[in-house]
Amino acid sequence: MEKKLPESVVLFERDLQVLKLMALGLSVPELAEQLFVGELTAKSLCKRVEEKLGTDNLEEIRSYAKGLRLI
Rank of each mutant, 00 (worst) to 15 (best):
M1N: 11
E2Q: 08
E2W: 00
K3E: 10
K4L: 11
L5C: 04
P6V: 00
P6Q: 02
P6S: 04
E7K: 14
E7N: 10
S8E: 15
V10M: 00
V10T: 01
V10K: 07
V10N: 01
V10S: 02
L11D: 03
F12Q: 14
E13L: 02
R14F: 05
D15W: 05
L16F: 12
Q17S: 09
V18L: 05
K20G: 06
K20S: 09
L21S: 00
L21T: 00
L21E: 02
M22A: 06
M22E: 05
M22V: 10
A23P: 12
A23H: 02
A23T: 06
A23M: 04
L24E: 15
L24K: 11
L24S: 10
L24C: 03
V28F: 04
V28A: 04
E30D: 11
E30T: 00
L31K: 00
L31F: 08
A32N: 05
E33T: 08
E33A: 13
Q34G: 02
Q34F: 09
F36W: 01
V37Q: 01
V37R: 08
V37M: 03
V37F: 00
G38C: 14
E39N: 12
L40G: 15
L40P: 09
T41G: 01
S44T: 14
L45R: 06
L45D: 10
C46G: 03
R48A: 15
R48Y: 14
R48K: 14
V49Y: 10
E50Q: 15
E50G: 15
T55L: 13
D56N: 15
D56V: 15
D56M: 14
N57H: 12
N57W: 05
E60S: 13
E60C: 04
R62F: 10
R62S: 08
R62N: 07
S63E: 12
S63A: 13
S63Y: 01
S63F: 01
S63H: 03
S63W: 03
Y64R: 06
A65Y: 03
G67R: 01
R69Y: 05
L70N: 04
L70W: 06
